[in-house]
Simulated scan of single mutants.
Amino acid sequence: MTVNVGLIGCGGISNPHVRGYLEIPDRAKVTAVADVVEENARTRAEQVGGAQVFSDYRDLIATAGVDAVDICLPHHLHADAILAAAEAGKHILCEKPLCITTDEAAKITQAVKANGVTLMCAHNQLFMPPVAKARELIQSGALGKVYELRTTDSFFNRGLNADMGWRGSLQTAGGGELIDTGYHPTYLLLHLATAEPSEVVAMTSRHRLEMEGEDSAQVMVRFADGSVGTIVTSWAYQPAAVTEKFSVVAEKGTLWSDGRTLNHRTIDGELTTVEFPEVHAFSAEIADFITCVTDKRRPINTEVEGVHVLKVILGAYASVKEKRVVTLADL
C-alpha cells in the first residue's frame, strides 16, 4: 500500500519532511501540497516529483484524494487544520506544538476520537537511538525508582532577530522560544519520565532577541510519582560544552547522553557507553508515521501525549505570570 500524503504548509520545516517521504517512495508519496505562498508550494511540488498545488489546504483536503496530511503550518493554524483533516477522515502528522490553547486541545481530542483517525505528533527527537534505549532501560526497572531528569535544547540563534515573523508574536506563536524549540526538551522529558506531570514552576527570560515572548526558559516539572524534571532551553546562547541532551538520576544508577552516545553508570560505578549510528530523525519520524497508518499501530506520541506537553508549557507560562507553582490538573 502506498499512502498518498497532502503536505499542508511548505515553509522551511517542510523540507526535512519531504526528504523523509522521498526516502520511502514505495510506501508513501506526497501527491498534493498547499501554501498561501505559491512559490513555496510549487517548490515543494517540484521536489516530490510533481504534485497538485493548492493555495487553500481546505481544498486539498476536500478534493486531492489523499489518505493523510502532514501539517507544517505556523503554530496558531495547527488546530483548524487538524480539525478539518480529522472531520474528513484523514490521518494526521502535525509539527509541534499540537496547538496553542487547552480549548483547542479539547476540540482536537474529541475530533480524533469521533472520526477514528490516527494523529501523530511530529516529535522527531524521540527517534534518536539513545532516547529509545534510555526509555527501554528506565521502563525495564534497571535503574529502579527515578529521582530526577533533565533535558536541554539551546543554541545561539543568529537568524531570527532580523525578522522574527510570526514567531515574534505571542498571538501567532502561542508564546516564545519555550513553545517552539523548547517543545523538544519538554516532550523528551515526558517521554523518559515514569509518571504523568502534575506540577510546574518556571522562569523565562528575554536575554537577546527582539520578540514579544521569551528567548530562554528554565522549567521544573514534578511528576505524579515524586520524580522531578528540569528543562533548560534557549535561542540566546550556545550552552556550555558539558551540557547533556538528557540525563536521568535514579535509585540504581544514572544515564546521560549527548544525543549520539548513551552512558549508563550503575550505583556500583560500572560504566557502559554505547555510541549509536547517526539517524536522520525526521526521516525516521516520517517512516514511522506511514507504518502507523498502514499497520494501524499507535504512534509513540499521539494527541494524548501532545496535550500533556502543551499543558506543561502553558503551565510554565502561567507560573511565570502568576509567580507560583501551577497544578496541571487545573488547566
Score class of each variant (00 low, 15 high):
residue 47 Q to S: 11
residue 199 E to S: 09
residue 100 I to C: 06
residue 81 A to H: 00
residue 321 K to W: 01
residue 90 K to L: 15
residue 240 A to V: 02
residue 55 S to C: 02
residue 301 N to W: 11
residue 26 D to R: 10
residue 303 E to D: 09
residue 5 V to H: 12
residue 101 T to E: 09
residue 188 L to W: 04
residue 230 T to H: 11
residue 130 P to L: 15
residue 96 K to C: 14
residue 212 E to S: 05
residue 186 T to C: 14
residue 329 A to P: 00
residue 63 T to D: 08
residue 295 D to S: 03
residue 284 A to R: 13
residue 126 L to G: 05
residue 241 A to S: 08
residue 7 L to N: 06
residue 50 G to T: 08
residue 242 V to K: 08
residue 197 P to Q: 11
residue 248 V to F: 00
residue 92 I to K: 00
residue 289 F to G: 01
residue 282 F to W: 14
residue 83 L to H: 03
residue 233 T to A: 13
residue 218 Q to F: 08
residue 289 F to H: 04
residue 88 A to T: 04
residue 168 G to V: 04
residue 235 W to G: 02
residue 220 M to E: 08
residue 211 M to L: 14
residue 4 N to E: 15
residue 312 V to Q: 01
residue 232 V to N: 09
residue 240 A to Y: 04
residue 245 K to F: 08
residue 246 F to W: 08
residue 26 D to L: 12
residue 241 A to W: 07
residue 10 C to I: 11
residue 172 T to C: 12
residue 55 S to H: 04
residue 224 A to S: 07
residue 293 V to L: 09
residue 153 D to T: 05
residue 95 E to C: 14
residue 291 T to P: 04
residue 212 E to C: 04
residue 212 E to D: 12
residue 94 C to Y: 00
residue 324 R to F: 01
residue 9 G to M: 08
residue 70 D to N: 15
residue 256 W to D: 12
residue 289 F to M: 12
residue 278 E to I: 03
residue 157 N to I: 01
residue 28 A to S: 13
residue 278 E to F: 06
residue 201 V to D: 03
residue 231 I to T: 02
residue 239 P to H: 04
residue 37 V to D: 13
residue 282 F to G: 03
residue 106 A to M: 01
residue 17 H to R: 14
residue 131 V to I: 10
residue 282 F to M: 11
residue 254 T to H: 02
residue 256 W to C: 11
residue 201 V to C: 07
residue 42 R to D: 08
residue 58 R to I: 07
residue 49 G to P: 14
residue 125 Q to R: 10
residue 201 V to A: 10
residue 140 S to Y: 08
residue 75 H to P: 13
residue 134 A to Q: 05
residue 186 T to M: 08
residue 27 R to H: 14
residue 217 A to L: 05
residue 104 E to W: 01
residue 180 D to E: 15
residue 191 H to K: 09
residue 16 P to I: 05
residue 109 T to A: 05
residue 50 G to H: 15
residue 18 V to F: 15
residue 171 Q to A: 15
residue 154 S to I: 00
residue 1 M to L: 07
residue 203 M to A: 10
residue 90 K to W: 10
residue 238 Q to F: 03
residue 99 C to Y: 00
residue 315 G to E: 07
residue 41 A to M: 06
residue 170 L to V: 11
residue 26 D to K: 08
residue 133 K to E: 15
residue 107 K to G: 00
residue 107 K to E: 08
residue 207 H to Q: 05
residue 190 L to W: 01
residue 74 P to K: 06
residue 197 P to A: 13
residue 311 K to A: 06
residue 329 A to Y: 02
residue 252 K to L: 06
residue 52 Q to Y: 09
residue 181 T to V: 15
residue 160 L to H: 07
residue 81 A to F: 00
residue 86 A to Y: 03
residue 238 Q to Y: 04
residue 311 K to S: 09
residue 297 R to A: 15
residue 263 N to R: 13
residue 310 L to N: 06
residue 214 E to Y: 12
residue 52 Q to N: 14
residue 56 D to P: 00
residue 11 G to V: 05
residue 308 H to R: 07
residue 252 K to F: 06
residue 119 L to T: 01
residue 232 V to T: 12
residue 258 D to F: 07
residue 152 T to P: 00
residue 186 T to G: 09
residue 60 L to V: 07
residue 18 V to I: 15
residue 124 N to M: 14
residue 128 M to R: 12
